[in-house]
């Protein structure tokens, strides 16, 4: 871990100012991923702006029928918030499928969006990695890539996005609210994270001087028919090999709207809106779910050790949708 200076501003404008005026500055809130990466010399900020005490720690109505999650509400407080449990149980379940109680007590909602990949090579500074050291090469493509991406990867990077919470937020069409010295902006969730392309060092579209202030949830929470299915190598406290956030709006047995977001398969929460739309008007049957799973996975590409994810993801989609529709 390299040396860094530290400041603890008391309001958002001061925080934004702090991060803009210090070289190589980063915000720290929960710290559960940033400190982890700093101890491995993967991230080396020269200044940390501690935002953990800013007044962004409330869950409120957003005036549009949905909830606004303050960026600094902890994951645990979000998952166990009565309104979240009632209106967005998919989000609660996704959060509780991730990490451990201790980490959920520390990690914040804003920070969760900024979690970095678990790719072994990204974490090990002895090996080349384009995400950590652009231009050094991707070790995973010809290496041990069991946990890596099958969708949307590039020749430069096959890392996956590690969050569970974000998979639910993607399915819910959340909006990320950010601010900087240049003013406020809101980013649709689908545009927040990005695919690696030729710049895998960039996980998302947030500017370095921008701060996440809140996450807006739309009114529609799919509380009735939803599932968060997480498949991993142990029963708890492990990252997803594949996860699925499935949400259905049903009229009788007819699907009015379907949302399917995948984790563990791509550099960002993976959605295929065309495939989802194909379910509209169709009955909720296993056959229809298999068909949509095939559409979502159709472009998937496996590597030496993660071929299994292609079939697993398909089956996970079918299982999650079947559970959401209460077929099983």
């Amino acid at each position: 871990m390299n040396p860094f200076t530290y400041s603890r501003p008391t309001d958002v404008p001061a925080a934004v100012q702090d991060v803009a005026t210090h070289a190589e500055a980063k915000f720290i809130a929960g710290g559960t991923n940033l400190l982890d990466l700093m101890k491995e010399n993967v991230m080396k900020p020269h200044h940390l702006v501690d935002i953990s005490r800013l007044a962004l720690n409330k869950i409120e109505e957003n005036g549009k029928g949905g909830l606004r999650l303050g960026a600094l509400v902890t994951n645990a407080a979000t998952a166990y918030h009565p309104e979240v449990e009632k209106r967005y149980p998919l989000l609660s379940k996704a959060i509780l499928a991730g990490a451990s109680p201790q980490l959920r007590n520390m990690a914040t909602d804003g920070g969760n969006l900024l979690q970095r990949t678990r790719c072994y090579y990204f974490y090990d500074v002895a090996t080349p990695c384009n995400k950590r050291e652009p231009g050094s090469g991707c070790s995973a493509i010809k290496g041990y890539n069991r946990i890596h991406a099958i969708l949307g990867a590039s020749e430069q990077c096959i890392a996956t996005h590690p969050s569970d919470m974000c998979i639910a937020l993607a399915a819910l069409n959340a909006t990320v609210l950010v601010t900087s010295k240049r003013g406020d902006r809101s980013i649709p969730f689908a545009e927040f994270h990005r695919l690696p392309g030729d710049t895998p060092q960039l996980d998302n579209t947030l500017e370095p001087d921008e701060i996440i202030t809140a996450i807006d949830l739309p009114e529609k929470g799919f509380a009735e028919n939803h599932t968060y299915l997480k498949i991993r190598d142990r029963a708890s406290y492990a990252f997803a090999l594949v996860s699925v956030a499935a949400a259905l709006e049903l009229e009788g047995n007819t699907i009015r709207e379907a949302r399917i977001a995948l984790g563990g398969v791509a550099h960002k929460p993976w959605r295929n809106e065309a495939a989802e739309a194909s379910l509209a008007g169709k009955p909720a049957t296993k056959e229809n779910f298999q068909q949509v799973a095939g559409m979502i996975i159709s472009g998937a590409k496996g590597y030496e050790h993660n071929q299994f994810k292609i079939e697993l993801a398909k089956r996970a989609i079918v299982r999650a949708l079947s559970q959401a529709a209460k077929l099983i």
């Binding site: 940390l48 501690d50 109680p101 980490l103």
Partner: peptide
Amino acid sequence: GVRINACMTLAVM
């Protein structure tokens, strides 16, 4: 009163 991992937070925080 809340359980956390002491390794993943800075003392100054």
